[in-house]
Structures are given as structure tokens and as C-alpha cells.
Amino acid sequence: MTSRTSTYNFAYLDEQTKRMIRRAILKAIAIPGYQVPFASREMPMPYGWGTGGVQVTASILGPRDVLKVIDQGADDTTNAVSVRKFFQRVAGVATTTKTGEATIIQTRHRIPEQPLREGQVLVYQVPIPEPLRFLEPRETETRKMHALEEYGLMHVKLYEDIARNGHIATTYAYPVKVEGRYVMDPSPTPKFDNPKMHRSEALQLFGAGREKRIYALPPHTDVVSLDFEDHPFEVQKFDRPCALCAAEGVYLDEVVLDDRGGRMFVCSDTDHCETRRADGHRGELAGDTT
């Protein structure tokens, strides 16, 4: 375990910053799906590396927490490794790759396959929190649209998908409606993960550092993906199981194997895949030993 760097306050942020973020989190929980502005700080990593998620995690983290960090489902990618090391260094907290052992999971673009339980907190790194931003660039207008529950434009956008492609072609950052009130961007998770947000047992917090917004989904909150009666929301389906652990009904990544068109599909959630292989599950490309 790396020792805590003594020159930094616990979890890097100063106490006044944490209080400000904590107050924003409380209001975000009280108004599910509503984007609370906060005074986002410069962090020792570039925007796009999860500065919003890092600030949320730093503000809720305690010495007894067990932290897991994933990027696209994987614990061993650059972003996940650097954020995890950051918190090991500035907070000295225990870390894990096991979904079930973590009290706080910071994520970029995935929700773990294993259902989360009460008491766990899922912290999302969000690049653009405003679901209406690409439809209306002015913040004053999108604020008003949320205030008036004026979400017709979003349905027009989904309809245009159908008109062009015959189906809703949005596959990630698929907009959801929270408790029948706010339309919310679930961050660029694949729409495959949208149903996991609905009535989750865990608290879900969203931090957007560059855009200076925090929003939240308390546990047991209704989260409904927008759709039409004749074009109901559906998630991606994969026609083959994971090549390593043979899991079905999970989100798969495509991995190119050679320059002759060889490819394999494997679990994007590395912990889920490793756990299954440790339990003896074998996919078609898994070696006999692990």
C-alpha cells in the first residue's frame, strides 16, 4: 500500500472545496436528475480524465472506504490505473478490482455487470452533462427547457434517428427521464447499461469537471430511457458469448487479433470476466489454464 503523501490534505482537495461539493451532492440527491452547478477545481490531471468524478470521489471518500476505478469496464486501463493510484497516494485508501468488495466505484463509461447493492456508491465521470446541449447550445435556454419540462426537441432528435435509419441509432449517452421529471444524460455509457440505472440499490453520483455540474440518482429511483410506443427502447444484443468466459447477456468489446480479419469478443467488465473464469467458465478462446 502506498503511503499517503503528507503534503496534501486527505483526498487532495481542501476542506472548503469538499464542503462546497458535499452541499452540491446533497441538493443533487434531493432533486434527482437535476444538474447542480458547482465550483469545479483545477485537478492535477487534464479535463477528459475524469476531473468531475475525481472531485466527487475525493469529497465523499473516507479512510475506511474501499475504492474501485474502472474505465470502459476495465480496472487495468490507463485512466483507471492513474485515478486509482492518485487516491492511493493522496488518501491512502484500500483499493480493489472486485465489484462486490468496493464501497465506492468510480467509473468511466460502464456500469459493472454484477448488480450493485445498498451502501455502494457509483461515481460517473461525465464529459457533457447537458443532454440538450447538442440541440441547444445556450445554457440559459437549456435551463429554461428543464424548468418548463420542455423536452420535445429530444424526442424530435430520436425521431430523426428513426426517419434516417429506421431505428433509434443512439447507442451511448442515451437520454433517460428521471422520476418522470428531468431528462438526464447517463454519461457516455452504452445504452446496454441504461436498465441497470433503473431502481438501482446503489447511490449514483455524476460529476462533470469541465462543465462544472453534479447530478445524482438516489437508490430506487425510476430511470426510463426515452422511446416511442412503436419504437420501444431496446439494448444491444450480442450474437455470441464472451470468448474467454462464455458469459451471455453482458456487454462485449471487440478485439482485433490479426490483419486478416480475425477478431474476438470479450467482456468489457474485466472483473466479471475474471471472476467467471476463476469459477471455471471457459469461452472458445480461453486457454486451459488461467
Binding site: F10, E15, K18, R19, L26, I29, A30, I60, G62, A216
Partner: peptide
């Protein structure tokens, strides 16, 4: 111990607001 105690009280507050 303001750093640790603020966090502990806030965390209870966050859990309570979420439940």
C-alpha cells in the same frame, strides 16, 4: 479531527438524504 469527522458526518448525511 475536522477532516475525518466532517467526512464521517457528511457521509451519514449523504446516506440519509439518499434514504
Amino acid at each position: 479531527d475536522p477532516v475525518i469527522e466532517s467526512q464521517a458526518v457528511f457521509r451519514a448525511l449523504m446516506d440519509a438524504m439518499a434514504h
